[in-house]
Computed example of a mutant assay.
Amino acid sequence: MLAQSTHTAEDRRKALYQRGRTTIFACKADPRFSYSLYVPEDIKVDGEPNLLVSVHGTARMQFQYREAFTGFGQYNNTVVLAPLFPVGVCGDGDADGYKYILEGDIRYDLVLLSMVAEVEEMLGCRFPPFMLFGFSGGGHFTHRFLILHPEKLSAASIGSPGSVTLLDHDKDWWVGIRNLKELFGRELNVQALRAVKVHLVVGGADVETWEIQHKKDGRRFMEGANDAGLTRIDRNNSLRSSLEKQGVTVNQDIAPGVAHNMEGIVPYTIRFFRSVLRQQECQASK
């Protein structure tokens, strides 16, 4: 609802900047990073509204990732949070740091959790475990966040990551998870992981390999970097197999005729998230 002259200054400020498609907010915990929101104008903040986090790919089209879910948010009492992790925050031009969670002294998983806490404070609400989506570079982030913080998530939709971390205790991060505790202070929580609704989605024509093959002189090359398969479809299947071996139920969509394109896979993600909310509603009504 638009601000009216009869509203208080605080009501007008909220209506203009904290409802609908919001402005961009710097993250208080680390102002190098920012986020924008979609907040339904009639949001019910006293009933634990849903939260959907939508993580951009390498091109950083932040608003595109918010807009993809505004309709979903409007009709499902769901706040949409779209973070922005800029290129080169360490001054070295690195475009990929957020994808692997750890870059220098930056923990991107903790940055996101700080953003979530700030939005809760801003809106005066508490979110239940949230839905997380990411495409391409965001798909990197999403499945690695899932590995580290399954207890924070109700659902994860992992879109077309170029490289995947498998649940392999014989290989180090990022190829495997052998040194998870050493790097992140956390063990793999298999029980919590099995409780998350997991969705893998990739375009059926997403077969170009020029961007995803790790070369030996590359910044993040390590032994086994290319072992999960040649294409994003192959790597999608490898991730599915790795999760299923740990007892995780995985939903998978391979979108016919879709290349490496976020708009082509989002309808599958929306269908998945709608099914998750329906299941939650059915359980709550019992």
Rank of each mutant, 00 (worst) to 15 (best):
F63Q: 04
I106C: 12
S36K: 09
I24V: 12
F25W: 11
L81N: 09
A205T: 05
R21C: 03
R178A: 15
V248L: 01
S285G: 06
M131S: 15
L239D: 01
D206S: 10
A195L: 04
F25P: 02
I254Y: 10
E10R: 11
D109P: 11
R232L: 08
L166D: 08
Q246I: 00
F273I: 04
N251K: 08
R278Q: 15
Q252Y: 01
E182C: 02
A284F: 03
F72K: 03
R126Y: 06
N226W: 10
D206G: 03
V87H: 08
L112R: 00
Q252P: 00
M61R: 14
G224V: 10
G218A: 15
I265L: 13
L167P: 02
L102T: 13
R126W: 05
L183S: 06
H149G: 01
K14N: 08
N189C: 01
K152E: 09
L230A: 14
G257M: 07
F221I: 10
V45G: 00
G137A: 04
Q213F: 10
V250L: 00
G73D: 05
T249Y: 04
A255I: 09
N77C: 12
V53T: 11
D42G: 08
R12D: 00
A3W: 02
P267G: 01
I233F: 03
S5R: 07
G137M: 04
M122G: 05
E103L: 11
L188Y: 11
P150M: 02
V79S: 14
D170S: 13
P49R: 11
K99N: 06
G20L: 03
S54Q: 12
S275G: 14
Q4P: 00
A26I: 02
P150F: 00
A192L: 03
W173K: 04
G104I: 07
M115T: 07
A117K: 15
Q4I: 02
S285T: 14
I254R: 06
